[in-house]
C-alpha cells in the first residue's frame, strides 16, 4: 500500500519542453511511472522524447485522463500553472518550482479552497512510492519498498534519511517532500493523516526545519491521533535568528520557529526525536524492533 501516488498514477508534466521538465519526465518514466505526456502553452501537437505535448491542462486531461501533474514552470508563471491544473480537475498537483512569490501562493491557496485538487509543494522534491511511481526529482534507486512513511520539508536531507533507512533494511511506503516555502499546499498533518489510514505504514520519519509552527501543529496532531512510532529530526539547531537558511520558509523570526521549541513539542507528543541527523535510520530500526 501507499499514499497519494502508486500504480494508478497517470502523470502529466507541466513545462515538459523545458530542460528540467523533460529531464525529470524521462526520469519518472524510467522509474516506471505512467507518464502520459505534458503541457507547454504554444507547443501543443508536438512530441518530445516520445511524450505528446498539449497547449493546456484541460486538453491533456481530456486526452489522457491524467490524475496527477508535476510542475516545472518558472517562478513568475508557476502559480498560474497550479491554478490551471486545479481548474482542469487534476487530483494531485506537485509543484517543484522554487522561488514563487509568497503573494502568489496566498492567491493559490484561496483558489484551491473548495476545489478537489491537492497541491504538494512548491519548492519540494515531490513524492515517491518505491517500486510503483516516482513523481518528483529524487534519485529513485536509493528507495526500497517497505513499511516506513517519510515526510519532510527538505530535499537532499530527505534523501539522506531514506538512504539511512534503506541501509538499515527498512523500505518505505511513500516518501513525501512537502517543500521549504512559507505557504505550501500540503502540511505535515495532511500527510500524517494519510499515513495513519494506510495499513502498511508501520512507522513514520518526520523531518522538519526551523521557521513557522508546522512541526508544533504536527506534534499536537500526532499526540491525538497516531499510535505508530514517529521518529523526528529538526534541521537548524545552529541557525542564527533572523537569517533565512536557504529555504524561504527556514527562518527563526519573532522569537518563533526555533529547533529547540519544535523538538520539545514533538518529544512531548511522544515523537522519538534525534539530535543527530546521522541517527534517523538507526532510531527508526530500533523503534520497529522494540
Amino acid at each position: 500500500m501507499s499514499i497519494l501516488v502508486g500504480r494508478d498514477t497517470r502523470l502529466i508534466v507541466q513545462g515538459i519542453t523545458g530542460k528540467e521538465g523533460l529531464f525529470h519526465a524521462i526520469g519518472c518514466r524510467e522509474y516506471g511511472t505512467d507518464v502520459a505526456g505534458g503541457v507547454t502553452p504554444g507547443k501543443g501537437g508536438s512530441t518530445v522524447e516520445g511524450f505528446p505535448v498539449w497547449d493546456s491542462v484541460v486538453q491533456a486531461r481530456r486526452a489522457t485522463d491524467c490524475n496527477t501533474s508535476l510542475i516545472f514552470v518558472p517562478p513568475p508563471f508557476a502559480a498560474d500553472a497550479i491554478m490551471e491544473a486545479a481548474d482542469a480537475g487534476v487530483e494531485l498537483i506537485v509543484c517543484i518550482t522554487e522561488g514563487i512569490p509568497v503573494a502568489d501562493m496566498v492567491r493559490v491557496r484561496t483558489f484551491l479552497a473548495g476545489r478537489n485538487s491537492r497541491l504538494l509543494g512548491p519548492n519540494c522534491p515531490g513524492l515517491i512510492t518505491p517500486g510503483q511511481a516516482k513523481v518528483g526529482i529524487m534519485p529513485g534507486h536509493i528507495h526500497a519498498r517497505g513499511n516506513v512513511g517519510v515526510i519532510s520539508r527538505s530535499g537532499t536531507l530527505t534523501y539522506e534519511a531514506v538512504w539511512q533507512l534503506t541501509n538499515e533494511g527498512l523500505g518505505q511506503t511513500t516518501c513525501v517532500g512537502i517543500g521549504g516555502d512559507p505557504v505550501a499546499g500540503t502540511s505535515f498533518i495532511d500527510v500524517l493523516a494519510l499515513f495513519a489510514e494506510d495499513e502498511t505504514t508501520e512507522a513514520i520519519v518526520l523531518i522538519g526545519e526551523i521557521g513557522g509552527t508546522a512541526e508544533e501543529e504536527a506534534a499536537d496532531w500526532i499526540r491525538e491521533h497516531l499510535d505508530i512510532p514517529v521518529v523526528g529530526f529538526i534541521a537548524g539547531a545552529t541557525a542564527p535568528p533572523g537569517r533565512r537558511m536557504g529555504h524561504a520558509g527556514a527562518i527563526v523570526a519573532g522569537g518563533k520557529g526555533t529547533a529547540a521549541e519544535k523538538k520539545a513539542a514533538l518529544a512531548a507528543a511522544g515523537v522519538l526525536v534525534v539530535d543527530s541527523p546521522a541517527e534517523m535510520g538507526a532510531r527508526t530500526a530500533a523503534a520497529l524492533a522494540s
Partner: peptide, 17 residues
C-alpha cells in the same frame, strides 16, 4: 559545503554535536 538547504543545516548541527 553542502548541496541542499536542509542537509546544509543538518551538517551544521552535527558539527556542533
Amino acid at each position: 559545503m553542502v548541496n541542499g538547504a536542509g542537509l546544509a543545516m543538518a551538517t551544521m548541527d552535527i558539527i556542533k554535536l
